[in-house]
Design a protein around this nucleic acid. Structure first.
Lengths: 341, 341
DNA sequence: GAAATTTATGTAATCGATTGCACTAAATTA
DNA sequence: TAATTTAGTGCAATCGATTACATAAATTTC
C-alpha cells in the first residue's frame, strides 16, 4: 500500500538513488547492465513515479486547464475531446471548468487553474467578460494561453477559431438559393467576435445578392431557446414578416421553430430556418435543422498543437498564432425546400 | 514572474521560513505581531502557496477524478456540476474523463487518474466493463471511490444511485393510467444494474396491474437513437403491436418516436412513449417527451458528501454507504393522452 | 530569587525525483 | 609505462512547504 520510491529500489540494489533515477530515465551514462537491472527491479517492486515530486522539481504539473461556457454543449464537449486526444500522448491531463457564461465564474476558475499550477490554459471566453485582468495575470505568469472559438484580441495570445464570417455567408447564400428574399437574423451578443463576424457575413451575403437589409429583421438574442421564441414572435408581428431566419445559434433557431409550429406556420415551406453550431439535437428536431458545423474536434486538436508548439519554444518568444478553420454548412430539412418538392 | 516563496518572505523579515509557514497557517504559537507582519508582507510580495510542494509534502493533491461514459449527456454533466459545487468550497478541483462507454478507455483513464495522484475517484462504470482489476487497484491504493448511477457491487465501495426500480414503476403505472394495456419495454444493457432494475420495475408494475407480459414486447437496445428506431420497427411488425413503450433511455425513445412519425403512427394517440433520464432534448422534441428525472445535481452533491465523509474518517474504516435517491416522473406530451382531450 | 512553565522562534529533516559536480576505475593514447 | 580520456556511479543540493524537536526568552509560581 505504501508507495515504492527510487530509494527503496536503490537500497535493494545497493546503488544510489541517482543511479536509479538515471536508469529509469534511460540516461546513456548508465551501463546497460545496471539499467536493465533497475528496470526489472522497478517492475517487480511495482514502482510508480511520483508525479507530484516530479512536478515540484520540474515546475511542470503536466496538467492543462480548459475553460468553457458550458461543457454539455456538443460543440464544447467535442473541442475538449479534440484537445484531450491530442494532448494525451504527451502525458498531459486536463482540468475542465465551466463558466456558465458568467464573467465572475470565469475569474474564479482562472484562479483555480493558476492555483493548480497548470502548464497551459485553453479558453473560450464567456459572453459578458469585459475586464481582462484575470487573463493578464495568466500572461504575466508566462503560462501559455490559447483561445478557441470565442477569443479576445490580446497581443501575443494565440487562437483557433473558425471563419464565422464565411460560415454565415454560406448559410445565408443557401437560404437565398432556396428562394428566400426577406431574411432575418438572430444576432448574438456582439461583445463576442464570433457573433459580430456572423452578422457581417449575413450582411455581406445580403448585399452581394442585392437584397435589402431591414433593420427590423435583425433581432438581438442570447442563444437560449426562449430567446428565439420571443424573437420570432416579434418578427411575425411585422407588416411583412421574413421568409427565412439565419440564426447565430442553434438554440434560438430551435425556439423559433417551436413557436412557428405552434402558430401553424410551416418550416421550411413558409419560412426557412438555419442555426449555427451543429448541436446534436439539431438532427433530432422536427424538422431536422440546417446548421453550420464548426469542426470542433479539429478545433480542439489544432488548439492543442498550438499549445505544444508554444511550450516547445524554449525561449518564450511570444509567437502569436491565429488559426482559422473552415466551417461546414449542414443542410437539413428546416431550410431544404428544393428537396421537399 | 518568478515565484515568491516563504523563503523570500523569511529573508526579507529576517525570520525563519518555519515561522513564516506557521504564521500563514494561523498557528497559535506564533505571536500576533509576527503573524500580522508576515501576512502583510506576504500580501505585499504577492506570495502564493505552491500547491505542488504542498501536495508532495502532504501526499494530498486536492484533486479528484470523475469518470463518466459521456460528459455531454445532460445527466452526467449535471452530476459533475453537483460534485464540483459541493467540493469547490473544500479546495478540491476536478479532472473529468470520458470513457465513451468503452471498458478499455475506462482502464486507461483510471490509470491516468491514479498517475495524477487524485485524492478520490467518482465513477459511473461503462457498459461493457466486466473485469474489475482497475477498480481493485484503486481500492488497494486506499483511494476513496464512489460510484454514482452505474455501480458495481464491490464490498466496501460506496455508491449514490436512484431508485431505478421505482422510477420505472411510476413510469409504467402512468402509462397504464393513460389507458395503455400492451406496454413494451426497451431494455438496456443488463450488464448494468440500472437497466436490470428498470426492467424489474416494469415487470412489477405490469403484474401489479394484472397486465400480461409479452416476451416479444421486450426489446434489447443500446441507448442509441438508431437502436430505438430498429426496435420500434420490430414491434410494429408484430400481429398485435403495443400501445405504449416504456424505454430505459431517452435516446431510444427518441428513435422510436421518429420512426413512428415517419410511418404515420400518432404519439401519444396511437401509442404512448416514455423515456428515462430527462435529457435536455426531451423538452425540444415533437411531441415533448415523458421521462424520468434522475435528480443529477443532487446525485452529484450526495456523491461529494459521501467522499468527504470518507476522507474525514482518519482510520480507513471501510465504511460503505449506499445512498438511493428518489427519481421524479416528468409527464410530457408523448404520453399525455388525457390532457390532450 | 530560583525553579518551573509558558511562549515564541529556530534548526533540520522530510516528501520523491532530478542533476551538476566529483570521483573511481577502466580504456585509450602517446 | 605514464598520461589522458571515458564510462559509470555517487554525493549532495534543489524544488517549496511542513513539522517534530530543540532552544531561548519571558512569565509565573512558591
Amino acid at each position: 500500500m505504501s508507495k515504492v520510491t527510487i530509494y527503496d529500489i536503490s537500497k535493494k540494489l545497493n546503488i544510489s538513488a541517482a543511479t536509479v533515477s538515471r536508469a529509469l530515465n534511460n540516461n546513456p551514462k548508465i551501463s546497460l547492465k545496471t539499467r536493465e537491472l533497475v528496470m526489472k527491479t522497478a517492475e517487480e517492486m511495482n514502482y510508480e513515479q511520483n508525479t507530484l515530486a516530479l512536478a515540484l522539481k520540474s515546475g511542470k504539473s503536466n496538467t492543462v486547464g480548459i475553460l468553457v461556457p458550458y461543457m454539455n454543449r456538443s460543440f464544447f464537449s467535442s473541442v475538449i475531446r479534440g484537445i484531450e486526444e491530442e494532448l494525451y500522448p504527451h502525458g498531459y491531463h486536463v482540468i475542465i471548468c465551466q463558466t456558465r457564461d458568467d464573467a465572475k465564474s470565469e475569474v474564479q476558475n482562472i484562479n483555480t487553474l493558476l492555483n493548480a499550477q497548470v502548464d497551459g490554459i485553453f479558453m473560450s471566453v464567456s459572453k459578458n467578460t469585459k475586464d481582462t485582468g484575470h487573463i493578464d495575470r495568466v500572461l504575466q505568469k508566462g503560462i501559455p494561453l490559447v483561445f478557441f472559438d470565442r477569443k479576445k484580441n490580446i497581443p501575443g495570445v494565440s487562437s483557433v477559431t473558425i471563419d464565422d464570417f464565411n460560415g454565415a455567408y454560406m448559410s445565408v447564400e443557401h437560404l437565398i438559393k432556396q428562394g428566400c428574399k426577406r431574411i432575418a437574423h438572430f444576432l448574438g451578443d456582439i461583445n463576442l467576435e464570433i457573433y459580430k463576424d456572423r452578422y457581417n457575413g449575413y450582411l455581406r451575403a445580403m448585399t452581394d445578392y442585392n437584397l435589402p437589409i431591414d433593420k427590423n429583421y435583425i433581432i438581438r438574442t442570447n442563444s437560449k431557446v426562449e430567446s428565439g421564441t420571443a424573437a420570432v414572435k416579434k418578427l411575425m408581428q411585422l407588416p411583412s414578416p421574413p421568409d427565412a431566419i439565419f440564426s447565430s445559434s442553434d438554440f434560438t433557431a430551435l425556439g423559433a421553430v417551436q413557436e412557428l409550429k405552434k402558430t401553424g406556420i410551416r418550416v421550411p415551406d413558409d419560412i426557412c430556418i438555419s442555426g449555427f453550431s451543429n448541436e446534436s439535437f439539431t438532427q433530432y428536431t422536427e424538422p431536422t435543422m440546417t446548421t453550420v458545423d464548426q469542426t470542433p474536434i479539429k478545433m480542439g486538436k489544432m488548439s492543442a498543437r498550438v499549445f505544444l508548439e508554444q511550450i516547445d519554444e524554449e525561449i518564450s518568444v511570444t509567437i502569436e498564432k491565429k488559426v482559422v478553420l473552415s466551417p461546414q454548412l449542414v443542410i437539413r430539412d428546416s431550410s431544404d425546400r428544393l428537396k421537399k418538392k
